[in-house]
Amino acid sequence: MKRRSLRWLLPVAALPVLALLAYGFRVNHRDIPSPLVGRPATAFTLTSYAGEPMSLEAHRGRVVVVNFWASWCIPACYEEAPVLERNWRAYRDRGVMVLGVDIQDKPDAGRKFIEQFSLTFPNALDPTGKVSIDYGVYGVPETFFIDARGRIRAKHVGAVTDAVFQREVDRLLAEAK
């Protein structure tokens, strides 16, 4: 009798597997948590498109937003460029710095992108990809929010929106006070 009921375990055993697959619908494969959040941001110095040195160290003590982008990243980078510019203008007087890092790109294309959106915050090409590896970037756009003490506090994957920018930056500004 015992064996007779045991055989019904066969279909029942399939249930957890099917449930696991169903769980897969809830997983976002683009959303890979960065181990860097909470850790000090790695320093870097690049030469900006304007020809000046662009380094993270120079802005220690301020809230810094580091944005990784590329001219070929359509449409997300094109959607967020005006957002970044707008918020940079709104927050620059409150001690917020925005730095753009152009990765896996050709200088001409990058320059054209900056002109197209009349970006006024500093942007630099990362010619060797070293900065993007240091920040664990796996796609563009990705944006890092760094607090006044130089620690990475949040990472945003995909196009930045006004809401995301303001939420993260306001939080870090409030702490700094």
């Binding site: 055989r7 019904w8 066969l10 279909p11 399939a14 099917l18």
Partner: peptide, 10 residues
Amino acid sequence: VVLVSLALLA
């Protein structure tokens, strides 16, 4: 498919 055929098997 899996549940029905395994149930048939049982």
